[in-house]
């Protein structure tokens, strides 16, 4: 008799718990899951949008399309850095790859600077800039909007007087961060281990 009572109590308890779980999940599930963006857009969101063409494509979006089709490898984007490769590997479910040996080397972030005394106002760099970060008009001095410059270096090649140089973005007080914790390694005496 006691066994039957116990069984009944346990049964009721389990039913009550199941009800709880169902109600809880109903609360969580009410917002419908967001529709996922197409794969190309999700890849494009990871790419750094420098539009520099170092990957061999005409910009970040074409590279994203090539990746989505599986036509190119994920280790061809130097501005994205290793973190970018890791994100791409996770999204595309591929292995992490080190940078391709023939890919251009990684550089610190830099912005273009026009030497205003040498600039002849030829507008070639304005046509080359993929993000419209250079201002100026024909036969007038040009200047770079440093905030908008992605550091793609595409304006360097067309300049007939070589007046554009890349200036690395300095580490200011605003870029400070706590150093990653370094765990001190203590020397172990040779006699302490068997």
């Amino acid at each position: 008799m006691i066994i039957i009572m116990l069984r009944l109590v346990l049964l009721l308890l389990a039913i009550w718990l199941l009800g709880k779980v169902l109600r809880r999940s109903a609360q969580q599930l009410t917002p419908a899951p967001a529709t996922t963006a197409p794969l190309v857009e999700r890849i494009d969101a990871i790419l750094p949008q420098t539009q520099c063409g170092q990957c061999g494509h005409a910009g970040c979006h074409p590279y994203a399309e090539a990746l989505a089709k599986g036509e190119d490898s994920i280790n061809r984007c130097p501005p994205g850095g290793e973190a970018g490769i890791r994100k791409l590997a996770a999204l595309l479910q591929r292995d992490y790859l080190p940078f391709a040996p023939d890919a251009p080397p990684q550089k610190p972030k830099a912005v273009a600077l026009i030497d205003e005394r040498t600039c002849i106002g030829c507008t070639l760099c304005i046509q080359a800039c993929p993000v419209d970060a250079i201002l100026g008009s024909a036969k007038q001095m040009h200047t770079v909007l440093a905030d908008e410059c992605t550091g793609c270096e595409l304006c360097l090649a067309p300049c007939p007087v070589d007046c554009i140089s890349m200036r690395p973005v300095g580490e200011g007080a605003g870029d400070w961060r706590w150093g990653y914790p370094v765990i001190a390694i203590q020397p172990v005496k040779s006699g302490t281990r068997p």
């Binding site: 494009d44 790419l47 750094p48 949008q49 420098t50 539009q51 910009g59 970040c60 993929p130 993000v131 419209d132 970060a133 908008e148 992605t150």
Partner: peptide, 13 residues
């Protein structure tokens, strides 16, 4: 944010 704004500018261009 910078990348997003760059993408927007590139698209506009």
């Amino acid at each position: 944010q910078a990348a997003d704004s760059a993408r927007q500018r590139h698209h506009f261009r």
